[in-house]
Design a protein around this nucleic acid. Sequence first.
DNA 1: ACATTTAGTTGACAAAATCAACTAATTATG
DNA 2: CATAATTAGTTGATTTTGTCAACTAAATGT
Lengths: 144, 144
Amino acid sequence: MTEKDIQKIRDFNRFYTNIIGLVDNHILDSPYSLPEARVLYEMYHHQPCTASEVILSVKMDKGYLSRIIKSFKKSGLIKSKPSKEDGRALLLVLTSKGNSEFDKINSASANQIESLLSRLSAEKIKELIHCMDRLKRILTTTEQ
Amino acid sequence: MTEKDIQKIRDFNRFYTNIIGLVDNHILDSPYSLPEARVLYEMYHHQPCTASEVILSVKMDKGYLSRIIKSFKKSGLIKSKPSKEDGRALLLVLTSKGNSEFDKINSASANQIESLLSRLSAEKIKELIHCMDRLKRILTTTEQ
DNA sequence: ACATTTAGTTGACAAAATCAACTAATTATG
DNA sequence: CATAATTAGTTGATTTTGTCAACTAAATGT
């Protein structure tokens, strides 16, 4: 790997950091913070699950997550019941309100992506996705 | 653009958010925070420049930047002199210490990228960079 | 000349994240 | 079995990060 290669990769990282920032900022139009939205996303896809399971996917401090979960309970987005297998753990599920709140921010995100890319031709989109797939595949063999 | 397309794009974004997080966390092994490192990067590449010019590239609150600059002055990374063209502005330059500190974190970042990708074959690297270039090009025609 | 804008600073604050101590339940080990 | 070590989750304290608004002083526009 040459100096120039590394430079290009880092340049792309800076570039894509901005793209992601663009997308992330958009979420803040919702009443949820970025970490809250991430938790909601993981909860939605893993429910019913425990807080520990959520931590595995979002990789955040357990105390921090505990507070987010607490606030979600308070605002009626999730409910919990003791786990039968493990008396320490709580099984968490989204309430119907929780699910519909997730649906809201989820479709808002989808709409944003769509409008962000609306000017691209079908071929460009196809190529875009192709490149993303390739990148992900290449990097997945490396990660960890 | 289909539902599935959007889903793939968002999936890639989540994936790459983690990659970037991986890279960013590494910077925190240095004595500089992420925003500090970004400021250092821009300063290095734009010097001599004013705080306003830095803001254009890093897009952060000017009060926040002002404090970072203040702390950089205190620790001897940058020095400033009044601008001749604009009495309100300060021309900022990195000191030799500032430049060498930047070099440190810069080469540490480069090393990290290299070690992160060390297992990839030359062909994979080539393909990786090609995909990044394509992605950037496609997205740049859209942005803004 | 005066109003408006711009560069930068500062204080007050809010939001995000970390750390360590703690309880209670579970699992591992002699 | 007993007890030590680990794990799930909570909480308080604190730090870091980032935002907002008010302010000074210089520059620019009218």
